[in-house]
Structure formats: structure tokens, C-alpha cells
Amino acid sequence: MIRYLEAAWPHEGCGVILRSDEGAGESWRVVSLPNASPTPRVAYAFAQEAWLQVCLDADARREVVACVFHSHVDAPAVFSTEDRRQAAPSGISLLPQVSYIVVAIYGGRAVSASRSVWITGGFQTVPLLLADFRFEKPV
């Protein structure tokens, strides 16, 4: 997820994390999606065809969407007013069981992240440690 979001810079990258409980335990899959926003430097939107295909594939694999992720370009990792509006357009979460991760990308490098979840009528946000997402050794 982090590598994809860094590579998307100077545009916002986006995608989902899918979870499966099938078989020998829980498994996770990260799926990047094309950013179809007309203003990709300041917003993201899933390409409709790609989103439909992810949903069909997830259904066939018995997966659920656990998380929606996207980056903010040269801006803080906060769940913005626009993010909230898209996730809950009329004050009701479209995906109440799904969390949202925002990663701040400055100059092509992830510097911070946050996770927001829907709890009783609103989103609650907590910071995340980027070390939790990186598998490479620091240079």
C-alpha cells in the first residue's frame, strides 16, 4: 500500500484492503485502484469499472472490504472534510464496517498516516505508525 501511494505522487493514490476468513485463517489483500478524480492532486475517486471488478472478485473469493485507503499530496494525513463528505454524504456512512486510512505523501515519500472509523454517527481518527506498514529495512 505504501509503495503504491508513494508511486502515485504527485497525485493521490487510492485502493482497498480486503479480508478473508476462509481456509486456514484470516488473510489480507491490498488492491490499488485507478484514481478517476478530475482533480487527482487534491482528491480521489475510484474508477467505477475497476471498483465493480474489485467487488465482483472479492465476492467470488469470499472477501470483504475492510479498509479504503488513499493519500494526501503534500498535505497532512487527516480525514478531511471532503473525505468525510464522500464517506458519509448525508451524515450516514456508506460503508459503516470499513475503516479509512489516509497517508501523507510529501515529495514522493510517506511521512505519516491516520485511520478513521465510523462510531455512532461520526468518524473517529487516530494516528498510525508508518513502521507498521513498512517491510523494508531503513536506509
Results as ranks from 00 to 15, higher is better:
I2D: 07
R3V: 10
R3G: 12
L5M: 14
E6M: 06
A7V: 10
A7I: 04
A8M: 13
A8E: 11
G13S: 13
I17L: 11
L18M: 10
G23L: 02
A24Y: 00
G25S: 06
S27Y: 00
W28A: 11
R29S: 04
V30S: 15
S32M: 11
L33V: 12
P34L: 07
A36H: 02
S37I: 02
P38E: 10
A43M: 08
A43C: 05
A43L: 03
Y44F: 15
A45M: 08
A47R: 04
E49I: 03
L52I: 15
Q53T: 15
V54L: 05
C55R: 08
C55N: 08
L56K: 09
D57W: 00
D59A: 11
R62T: 05
R62E: 06
E63H: 09
V64Q: 06
V68C: 08
F69T: 05
F69S: 05
S71C: 05
H72A: 02
V73C: 13
D74K: 04
D74E: 10
D74R: 02
A75C: 04
A75E: 12
P76E: 13
P76Q: 11
A77E: 11
A77L: 13
F79D: 15
T81M: 02
D83G: 11
D83W: 04
P89A: 06
P89Y: 01
P89S: 08
S90Q: 08
G91V: 02
I92V: 07
I92D: 04
I92L: 07
S93V: 04
L94D: 05
L94K: 06
L95G: 00
P96R: 07
P96H: 03
V98T: 14
I101A: 06
V103N: 03
G107A: 06
G108F: 05
A110C: 06
V111D: 09
A113T: 13
S116R: 01
S116A: 15
V117G: 05
I119E: 14
I119R: 14
T120L: 09
G121F: 13
G122C: 02
Q124F: 12
P127Q: 10
L128C: 15
L129K: 03
L129R: 03
L129C: 14
A131T: 14
A131M: 00
D132C: 13
R134Q: 13
P138R: 15
